[in-house]
């Protein structure tokens, strides 16, 4: 059985193709101006990797902000359910999924079947999202992918207290003028970011095991800080954390197919 999931978000789009219960191909692209375009581009690429065509796909669900506009999807599911589903399928012991994406942050609780039990989504502007990191990395003049590794080497992280990106920028600038090392500032940024995510996690509470999905999960500095702040260690994903939404969508497509065939 070949199934697929397609996740069209605000910054990136992902596709996952599964065959007989395992992932055979996946793809991540920057979003195009229109979600339909993003969806077909990313799916085309994944299909070509798998050496398949649309005809091979028996079921495909979509998720993400563009989920309702995907022509080849037979159903759509919220990204909240999908992240929960995908992560719990990969690591069956997972009960709490922290998804930190480009524009929002969600904390998702699931049961032993990967079914959504409870969730919370950030209300505040950029605080606690990938956008905050992007903004801060820019102020610091380094790439967003360097924030994590840079920060890890710091022994004296600077303190960035403000929740507001604008004031946080002022604080970062102050540190730069004061001649603080880039590593220390990067560490401060990662710490600030994890504090914001922690605040959200506390609203639904932590139930172990936990795992972190979404683009920000790739920032080792934030992950380490978050683990410390929550006093837990996050389960390591064996696939790219950005793919979890699309994976969840594929799994929902499989369930739908199974129900249909029953």
């Amino acid at each position: 059985m070949v199934i697929a999931g397609c996740d069209v978000g605000s910054l990136s789009a992902e596709a996952v193709i599964m065959k007989d219960g395992s992932i055979v191909a996946s793809e991540i692209i920057r979003v195009r101006p229109r979600p339909e375009q993003s969806a077909s581009d990313v799916m085309d690429a994944a299909l070509s990797k798998a050496g398949m065509t649309y005809k091979d796909i028996e079921g495909c669900f979509s998720t993400g902000y563009g989920r309702e506009k995907i022509p080849f999807a037979s159903g759509n599911i919220s990204e909240i359910s999908c992240h929960g589903k995908g992560a719990q399928w990969l690591i069956p012991s997972v009960r709490t999924v922290i998804d930190v994406g480009g524009q929002d942050c969600k904390v998702i609780k699931v049961d032993e079947n990967g079914k959504l039990v409870n969730f919370v989504m950030n209300d505040k502007c950029a605080a606690g999202t990938g956008r905050f990191l992007e903004f801060m990395a820019k102020v610091l003049g380094i790439g967003i992918e360097d924030l994590g590794p840079q920060g890890l080497s710091s022994e004296q992280p600077v303190s960035i207290t403000s929740f507001c990106s604008v004031y946080a920028e002022t604080e970062v600038l102050h540190s730069i003028y004061e001649g603080k090392a880039v590593a220390d500032i990067a560490a401060g940024i990662n710490h600030a970011m994890s504090e914001r995510v922690k605040a959200l996690v506390k609203r639904v509470g932590v139930e172990e095991d936990i795992c972190i999905t979404g683009g920000v999960a790739k920032n080792t500095g934030v992950v380490k800080n978050l683990e410390a702040a929550l006093q837990v260690s996050a389960q390591k994903l064996t696939v790219d954390p950005q793919l979890i939404g699309a994976l969840g969508a594929a799994l929902f497509a499989r369930e739908a197919l199974a129900n249909q065939n029953r």
Binding site: I77, S78, S81, N118, F119, M121
Partner: peptide, 26 residues
């Protein structure tokens, strides 16, 4: 849910949460 009113509303986020809620209650 916390939301904004009328022209300032973020309908995408509102919709996502409501959909997830429907999924949550099965």
């Amino acid at each position: 849910i916390e939301r904004e009113y009328g022209p300032l509303a973020d309908t995408g986020r509102f919709r996502t949460r409501v959909q997830a809620f429907l999924e949550q209650i099965g």
